[in-house]
């Protein structure tokens, strides 16, 4: 199982760091990409990852109200709500896209979130996007 995680550099990425330094265990299926803010997410990032056959995409940002840029994550929340409906309509199980709020102090929550998305994806019956059908780009 392959999961791409987009983590905001102020909270969630630091949370992932903390999970590491605290030696917390979480599944190794995850590839983290650091982004400045969860609202930096362009739907293309998520769609691109899914179209290349990853099993799930996890977006992680600061808790609502705690955004480093005051309110970026509120926008993320609105956009992903709609994007989730769109991918569902276009044949991708919406469970494959998850959004978590993880602060820099929540190493434990980061590990839990990874476990959570894995357990959700394990329950899914339908196949992800066919692998390697796209370009190598």
């Amino acid at each position: 199982m392959e999961i791409v995680a987009f983590c905001c550099q102020w909270c969630s990425y630091a949370g992932a760091d903390l999970a590491g330094t605290s030696r917390l265990k979480y599944p190794a299926n995850i590839r983290i990409i650091k982004i400045p803010c969860s609202s930096r997410i362009n739907p293309t990032f998520i769609l691109k990852a899914l179209s290349k056959g990853v099993d799930g995409v996890m977006v992680a940002g600061c808790h609502p109200g705690d955004c480093h840029y005051s309110n970026g994550n509120y926008f993320t929340r609105r956009r992903l709500t709609v994007l989730k409906r769109l991918i569902e309509f276009c044949g991708i199980n919406p469970e494959r896209l998850q959004l978590y709020w993880i602060s820099a102090a929540e190493g434990g929550k980061f590990a839990e979130s990874v476990k959570d998305i894995i357990s959700r994806l394990e329950k899914i019956q339908d196949k992800p996007f066919p692998k390697n059908s796209g370009s190598s780009l």
Partner: peptide, 12 residues
């Protein structure tokens, strides 16, 4: 113009 790329383009 490969299908998965087109999928990304049109959904975006």
């Amino acid at each position: 113009s490969k299908t998965p790329e087109n999928y990304v383009y049109h959904l975006t």
